[in-house]
Design a protein around this nucleic acid. Structure first.
Lengths: 339, 339
DNA sequence: CTGAAAGCGCTTACAG
DNA sequence: CTGAAAGCGCTTACAG
């Protein structure tokens, strides 16, 4: 591999000049610039990033941190959608993605992760930081490294989806369809900060319409398909008069639909089921899922944009992205009034 | 951040000694080792990876290359499953994942990618290299960088799923269920090498059972849900006597089921639909999808293992992973003989 | 507008 | 078993 020195010799200038020309420093003769660029082209020179990193501290590597908790990381299509947005923005700016997947414990993330953060490789961090148990950004903050969180931990810079509003949209939709025997499939609030906010949104809207949120039966899953199926079985068994199931993610909703059908319920004719997330496959369930879109790619894209603002010395304000109701075929008006 | 020199001073030894102790070179007094380790602990020393990379060429960074083509990268759950396997093995060995998503054109991958490969950052490459249009490993091979391909390009080291066998399993299953009016939903063979092999598997098994593969109606999609839906509509309209649809991925199968249902066909009662991939959500469709499992995580895990063998100077043989038929509810015996 | 030289934090033959 | 010293390939004040 040709080095900076090779280019300098070929162009008949110093390495300092080559370095400055390549980093677009102004104040250079057009002639010098041309000589240098020609040498670069002829030699096929590509800068050694490790050397650049060592001398300047600029690695052009961003750690994208997706903690390895419950079943989300490699099973949840939503994660991939968020990554898509991050990738688009980072790639556009010529940055690289170091995918970090720390194991999260009460005591914090694993040492491989903490070492990585302190290794000098990382120029900034974008992290999914929404697990109440521990924050992956604690160590990053200590080091004062530029970082943006997607989530609810009290980090300096962060972005999140408006989960409270999303919950409201779910409840409002189902109430407008005439339902009032409504079951809720959620998860324990310790699994993800968003749960608490979505539930509050549900409650807020229910009470606004004079329904008692407290009396709505609820079962908790862990976001997986199976857990949604189990939760639905429990709710529909204990409360056969339910006409609607509000699920706090799409995968649990899909599990719920399967179970409901296996129990002889028609969806949506005698049971409406609503999901949350609008994962790509939610349109492919039978019936297609009514759900809440939370702009996952946009969440990632904006997080990346905010990180570059931090690089530029700015202090981007916490952003909250609105959600949208996507009406498909899994919800409909109540047909039977069974009370 | 404390440096090697700080540690050396604190321990009262040279930086060479610290370096060697840390890299587990033998021949050291237990006393020396203890002194060094204590200094490391006290100072909270973490090696600077850029410096290590520059001087030794060992970066502990593996580029995981997923080309950005058709709709696969951020929409196909299979990609995430493969990544899961790669991540597990790489993390276990203390290596980091640089996620590279080059745009692929006829002329090859984009320059950001080729520069990355030549940047000195990358110690090895694991790539999904199955798009006939161009190979992302061409440039890597030129540089003689250790690499393992998941796919069919003629790369030195590679692993793949037994697509031919997978095709056979699909066909065998549906024939055993008594079907012989069989439609095929595939994609153009230019999109992915696996298609050709799966189709051959289909053909092989059909002919072995005395059925004419040539006469089986076929429609092509692009792996997306929508394209599967369209292909199914076309096939079922032009050939209403079909009793089975063999789809070369799960997402097209899910789209096909939806369309079939919308056209008034019961699945599986008067139409069996079989998918391919066994993505996590295939169990959540209604009815749950009969499909072919190709051990996606294992594919990634073994690719990573092979890469470390290459690091060790070995020459791992090309591996082929067997597939399995997963029978769920979307396939059943033919009920009506309509010919 | 351009260059000489120090320095980033490690590793690695080479000596002893 | 341990250390002195060169070197990896860049960038960056500092001079001129």
């Amino acid at each position: 591999m040709p080095t900076l020195l090779d280019v300098a010799r070929a162009a008949g200038v110093s390495t300092a000049t080559v370095s400055k020309v390549l980093s677009n420093t102004p104040y250079f003769t057009e002639a010098t610039r041309a000589k240098v660029m020609q040498a670069v082209d002829e030699l096929g020179y590509v800068p050694n990033l490790a050397a650049r990193a060592l001398s300047s501290g600029k690695t052009h590597i961003i750690a994208v941190v997706f903690p390895y908790v419950y079943d989300a990381l490699f099973t949840d299509p939503l994660v991939l959608r968020i990554l898509e947005g991050i990738e688009a923005e980072l790639t556009k700016r010529g940055y690289n993605i170091l995918l970090s997947t720390p194991r999260l414990r009460e005591s914090g993330p694993d040492t491989h992760y903490t070492r990585l953060i302190r290794s000098g490789y990382i120029e900034g961090v974008i992290a999914l930081d929404s697990v109440p148990m521990a924050s992956v950004l604690e160590i990053v903050r200590q080091r004062k490294m530029p970082a943006v969180a997607i989530g609810y931990h009290p980090n300096t810079y962060s972005i999140r989806s408006d989960d409270h509003q999303g919950g409201q949209l779910q409840m409002e939709h189902i109430i407008r369809l005439g339902h009032h025997k409504i079951g809720i499939i959620a998860s324990d609030e310790s699994l993800h900060f968003s749960i608490e906010h979505r539930l509050r949104g549900l409650q807020h809207m229910a009470e606004q319409h004079g329904l008692s949120y407290q009396q709505m039966p609820r079962a908790n899953g862990d976001f997986s398909i199976d857990s949604g199926a189990k939760a639905a079985r429990q709710l529909l068994t204990e409360h056969p008069d339910l006409t609607a199931l509000l699920c706090l993610n799409d995968r649990m909703a899909m599990g719920a639909i399967q179970t409901a059908q296996a129990m002889g319920r028609q969806v949506p004719d005698d049971l409406s089921v609503i999901g949350y997330d609008n994962i790509p496959l939610s349109m492919a369930s039978s019936p297609a899922l009514t759900t809440i879109d939370q702009q996952a790619p946009e969440l990632g894209r904006i997080a990346a944009t905010m990180l570059f603002e931090v690089f530029d010395g700015k202090q981007p304000a916490t952003a909250t992205l609105p959600t949208t109701l996507i009406v498909r075929q899994s919800s409909s008006h109540v047909l039977v009034n069974n009370y």
